[in-house]
């Protein structure tokens, strides 16, 4: 265990954080399933390069936790692997804050309680942040292994830059709003 990673959370921490956090970026995946790790890897690439206040969260296996994160987020960017007939490394960007995720996405990325269900359930409950973006990266090898295919690796930097731009745009919109 890395000592620097460890902290005892307390009940108030997330609430306090919500007051000072403008945007939450969630990377979803399983690092033992090849290309499925891409959401986590994008998030790790973002660490250290986002403005103060941006919250970076890794999720592995329980996408229903998105609902909880949404309660305390003004804006959210979700990064997840998807399966599609499109070439590996293709990036989908869906403005799920404004429109429903395409039904086809259910075919691309689903789980017990998967990302799109979480987004749509949050919308039904009225807790979906007004700004919610979903980045889906097409993978092709989801077997039990550590490491991603080259095309997916190559997409990481593109998404990282895209997300950084989204964050700065969000901040500038907030500043104008003030």
């Amino acid at each position: 265990m890395s000592k620097s990673e460890f902290r005892i959370n307390n009940h108030r921490s997330s609430r306090e954080l919500s007051h000072e956090t403008s945007i939450t970026v969630v990377g979803i995946g399983n690092e033992f399933r090849g290309d499925d790790a891409v959401g986590l890897m994008v998030l790790r690439q973002l660490k250290g390069s986002t403005p103060t206040g941006a919250r970076l969260i890794e999720l592995a296996g329980d996408e229903s936790h998105l609902l909880e994160l949404m309660r305390s987020a003004d804006a959210m960017i979700i990064v997840d692997a998807v399966q599609s007939s499109a070439p590996a490394g293709t990036i989908f960007r869906v403005d799920t804050g404004r429109e429903s995720a395409p039904k086809d996405f259910l075919f691309f990325s689903t789980h017990a309680f998967e990302t799109v269900t979480a987004i749509e359930t949050a919308r039904a409950l009225g807790i979906l942040p007004r700004e919610t973006l979903l980045y889906g990266i097409v993978g092709k090898d989801f077997s039990y292994k550590v490491g991603m295919t080259e095309e997916v690796e190559d997409a990481i930097e593109v998404i990282r830059e895209g997300i950084l731009e989204e964050i700065y745009l969000h901040h500038s919109r907030q500043s104008v709003g003030k």
Binding site: R7, I8, N9, N10, A60, S64, H65, E68, L125
Partner: peptide
């Protein structure tokens, strides 16, 4: 559904407190 989510959060908070963090307890 909101009741279910509140219940789940109570469990999440307990795990986060004891396990060091909510995801990948350490």
């Amino acid at each position: 559904v909101q009741r279910g989510l509140r219940l789940k959060k109570a469990g999440n908070d307990l795990v986060a407190l004891l396990a060091g963090r909510e995801i990948h307890p350490i």
